[in-house]
Design a protein around this nucleic acid. Sequence first.
DNA 1: CAGAGCATGTAAGAGGTTACATGATTAC
DNA 2: GTAATCATGTAACCTCTTACATGCTCTG
Lengths: 187, 187
Amino acid sequence: MSLAYAILAALNDRECSGYDLAKYFEESIGYFWSATHQQIYRELALLEEKGWVKGETIAQEDRPNKKLFALTTLGQAQMAEWIAQPSKLSKHKEEVLVKLFAGNLVSPKVLISELERLRQVHRQQLQTYQEIEREYFPMPKTLPYAAQCQYLTLRQGISHELNWVGWCDEAIALLKEDNTEPNSSQP
Amino acid sequence: MSLAYAILAALNDRECSGYDLAKYFEESIGYFWSATHQQIYRELALLEEKGWVKGETIAQEDRPNKKLFALTTLGQAQMAEWIAQPSKLSKHKEEVLVKLFAGNLVSPKVLISELERLRQVHRQQLQTYQEIEREYFPMPKTLPYAAQCQYLTLRQGISHELNWVGWCDEAIALLKEDNTEPNSSQP
DNA sequence: CAGAGCATGTAAGAGGTTACATGATTAC
DNA sequence: GTAATCATGTAACCTCTTACATGCTCTG
């Protein structure tokens, strides 16, 4: 159900074709809600049936025609109503933590190298976010309301990645401390 | 597929019945991998078929019989192999961020009160984690390897919650700054 | 002329949620 | 006696992922 609202949120920002949305869900929106193009096309069809969005076919030369979708006033109202309701907490699923939890089945070296890889990934993502911040939100306090809201989602991304990098540091340090000598347990 | 490994991780920690696992997935393991009892029973049956776990029926007086599951050596090996592979990053899905992204559709008051609610929830969870830390991991550096690994999953939980609380503070502060007067946009 | 990008879809299968179902015991 | 806890399942449904499919244009 929430995928519907994620699509509405995207369309509230700008009109999109299904294809545009799919790309959108690989950057900005995708940073906090993931979806594939298959899901998006299916959901768009349902949303149009309900009248929450309206599609208009745009003829294009040199390229396949596309269907641009926009929020209807009904869609806006539904979105506003949804926003006002208490959010469900996301069910986190973190493979790395499952692995650590059963970490005694492998040597600390295995864990350390996985954590180092992970740290690198999060550093990379952090850098991406920080570049967006520098480029689009240099003076957050002077932003109009709508932009401020979006800025805050970026801030969440940044602190999230910083947090992961910091935790990886901590974890690697602890695991290296006494477990580098081959004494503790399993191979 | 990963649910299987989450179950193996739990059974590596201790033998469990399906019922025990379901409870386990509402606390410790559940903090980073969620599953309902229906999923668990289905998966356990598959895992037993494959010989990764072995169930033994325990007759009980005064209570229904139960079937205790334990990791087999095959299961241990499969788990170790899985741990050594690079982890998939979790696809984050954060309703609150979707809401913020389209925040211009509602008044800042709505967002602020939702963020305050959320902050409270994360503070609560943080406290739970910190109590576990105090009670079970008072001296992390002296822990045996297996316990250290599990301790690190708890540390991730703690810094995750701290991070959310901090971000909520930041977001609330920014939204309160200029948007408390009824000037900016929609009702 | 190969590969990337534009643009939209179908179909099968895996994974997850919700509701229903049972039946005993223990605590208030 | 009412609710909670122990213990295990089935069935229907929804959501998500992965693979397959098409066809055109622009870039190198």
